[in-house]
Amino acid sequence: MSVIVAALGWSWQETEVDPLTGMVSADPRDRGPGRSDLAALEQALRLAQRWDARVVAATAGPGEADALLRDALAAGADEALRVEVQAGSAGPLPADLVGGEQESATALAAALRQRYGVPDLVLCGDRSADRGTGSFPAFLAAALNAAQVLGVVRLESDGDGMVRVHRRLDGGRREVLRVPRPAVVSVEAAGVRLRRAGLPATIDSGLAAIPVARAPGTIAARWIRVLGAHPYRPRPRELPGPSGPALRRTLELTGALTERTPPTVLGPLAPARAADELLRYLRRHGYLAGDDGG
């Protein structure tokens, strides 16, 4: 019987960043899986029905994270597994927000291997709400030596027990892939909501014991050294660096060389005229085929 794992992160959902000091504050009670994590669990449950597979809800997190695994059990996961990692800080410190994905992914992979061998499929969320780099699934795939598909917006299982997914590419393009086993797939929340857990299951899950695995000591955490944190300020536009003789440079700096149509302000115009002008401008700069827009 095949095994589908839903990897759920124990992350801060609501954070406040002081616009002056950059101090990050969060309510620990808002900690839990993100929307895309829950979408991953739902997808896992749906696939499991098709394949009659077991769904394992897994997390690498502190003891409080058992709560999210209990909710997963209530929603229909067959088993839960938590890999013990140190609790981290009461509120997210900058150090908690950078790095750590590889360490926790490697730890989780090791624990999964030990209990289940390499699972057929691991579903993750697309991004966590706090670190939000979307790299955990990739690290997990590397550690399980499995195929990886990130940022999936559509997931369907075609007859032969394979999964076919649509994944976001640049510029709104989508890539369609066939996912072999084993694989790690990260899904966006796109339209998928976790089913509502039934009452008896919810009540019982409250008492469920959560198996805990220790992270093998071999995984060396390579902490990223944080130098400082502050509120993000978009960086000022940068001008082309020195190139060519002084004159040319000043011309570049003054933007004299980039052929821009001199700024024009027209109007007040009636809507029709305004539309004419707008479309003409677009046409002149090749955004419209000549005949467009009458």
Binding site: T261, V265, P268, P271, A274, L279, Y281, G293
Partner: peptide, 24 residues
């Protein structure tokens, strides 16, 4: 916004949008 624009059109935006919608 208009000052930083290459083309600034002084007009009623909703109306212009409606006009465009029709043209396109």
């Amino acid at each position: 916004m208009t000052r930083m624009a290459d083309l600034g059109i002084v007009a009623d935006a909703p109306a212009v949008l409606a006009e465009l919608a029709e043209r396109l």
